[in-house]
Amino acid sequence: MLLQFNVQIILVAAQATWRRSLRPALVRDSVLLPLLGFAGLILLWWIVATLRSEMMPTPWQALVANLDYILHPFYRRGPGNLGIGWLLAASLRRVLIGFVLGALVAIPVGFLIGMSKQAMLALNPVIQILKPVSPLAWLPIALAIFNLANPSAIFVIFITSLWPTIINTALGVSSVSKDYIDVARVLEMPRWRQVLKIILPASLPYIFTGLRISLGIAWLVIVAVEMLTGGVGIGFFVWDSWNRLNLSSVFLAVIVIGVTGLVLDYIVGKIQEWVTHRPASQT
């Protein structure tokens, strides 16, 4: 009895030391070191702002100046005077509409290119030429077509979202393992069902890679587009703050834009895991 008790104590102690030796490493890797990185960045900002106080506010000054925005993200004080949450929502709405429209076009086109040699030969040169064009170059064309800022911004996002999704979908479709296709052929699966039940699920990881890249670039581009088109949005907020020489708000916007981009990528990654039943690769 006593012996058993002793053994138990030893086991508990061993477990405790094991946990103790494991947990600090985890805390360090996932909390302390990332915090160190941010602290270093803020320190750098602080040093520069202290040395050249006429150039930019220190982090503390920026925080104080932005307190109203941070505490009341959803205020409405008349037309055009909205909280930063509303601006963010307006930008997100444009990005999501453009991105979804882009995906609806890009995924079928990618399938076509991946499955048909002729379609690949016909469309590949067009894509290769249009892909390196800055999406902003489409803005004047969009404005000429729509005559309105909002649809034009959505159109630019739509164009932006096309290329990575098309290219990755085509790659995924054309690299579906021949083994899977052989299974479908032996089972006498008709072609259209092969597309739905074999090729689509097999290429989903590639499609999601394309979607994540597209959404990332779309979020980059919307800020620039809104700077040019004006109106309600986080991009115009940046430009407007600069014009009012309010650099504090620009810093706030940079952080908000960065965090939002991260959250968007995380959400698409989660959707990918949910759809493909497999952990999404880190990008």
């Binding site: 393992s177 083994d179 899977y180 052989d182 032996v186 699920p201 097999a202 493909t276 497999r278």
Partner: peptide, 14 residues
Amino acid sequence: RMMVFQHYSLLPWL
């Protein structure tokens, strides 16, 4: 004439 494949050919998403 059903096949059993050398490398199994199972569909990994199912």
